[in-house]
């Protein structure tokens, strides 16, 4: 994929977030406008609250964005600001229960974006998918706010292979090896399906996570 991330620097007076799906996408920058209006910063695919607020600015609906608008980073505490941290792999149980919901800069638990294969290593979500937890928290937040949202492009989050293809490169931290598949012995598709189903059965269904 070779889409450019130009819309992340969107300018204009409206951030286009009046409704999850029914309102227009944010207006293109008008000439002479000098005050930037930030779009929502979120940490991954399917976690955008607004139309047009993903990395490429092309998503049709809340919850349907392709990728994070928060700055890409690869590990614990490297997030720029509040709610811009990923989750899993490092940090205590509370941090690992709040993907994209950290209190401050440098307090996120792990890399952004959150690949489908990532799991929590501490707390109640241990051994389960981080992205599925992030999506669950997102859906709860949207329902509480009486907002509509659509399905994520990938039901269980963006696979690492897709992120590498989309972003050119992608990595999350740790020395313990590939989270997708360790050996010539394993079945990566089955592993991915099992992680997803174990994390939130109703979201998942197919081995390819689409």
């Amino acid at each position: 994929m070779s889409k450019k991330s130009t819309k992340i620097e969107n300018l204009g007076s409206s951030n286009g977030c009046g409704g999850g799906c029914s309102t227009p996408a944010p207006a293109p920058p008008s000439s002479g406008t000098v005050v930037p209006t930030p779009i929502e910063l979120h940490v991954c695919m399917g976690l955008n609250a607004c139309k047009g607020h993903d990395r490429y600015g092309t998503n049709e609906c809340a919850g349907m964005g392709l990728c994070a608008t928060a700055q890409k980073h690869n590990c614990h505490t490297l997030n720029n600001c509040r709610n811009q941290g990923g989750c899993g792999l490092y940090g205590d149980g509370e941090e690992q229960s709040n993907p994209g919901n950290n209190d401050c800069a440098w307090q996120g638990s792990c890399a952004v974006p959150i690949q489908a294969e990532r799991y929590s290593t501490q707390g109640e979500n241990t051994g389960k998918s981080v992205w599925v937890l992030a999506r669950k928290l997102f859906e709860e937040r949207m329902k509480k706010a009486n907002r509509n949202f659509g399905p994520s492009p990938y039901k269980c989050g963006p696979p690492q292979a897709w992120l590498v293809e989309s972003l050119g490169s992608y990595d999350s931290c740790g020395n313990s090896g590939n989270k997708y598949c360790s050996f010539g012995y394993n079945n990566p598709a089955e592993d991915a399906k099992e992680l997803c189903e174990k994390s939130e059965p109703h979201l998942c269904g197919t081995a390819n996570n689409k």
Partner: peptide
């Protein structure tokens, strides 16, 4: 104060079926 966590990705290894062991 989040100074200590028992496990992180570096205290994990995978068994022969790629199941994470903590």
């Amino acid at each position: 104060r989040r100074y200590y966590a028992n496990n992180n990705i570096d205290t994990v290894y995978y068994d022969i079926n790629h199941k994470a062991q903590y």
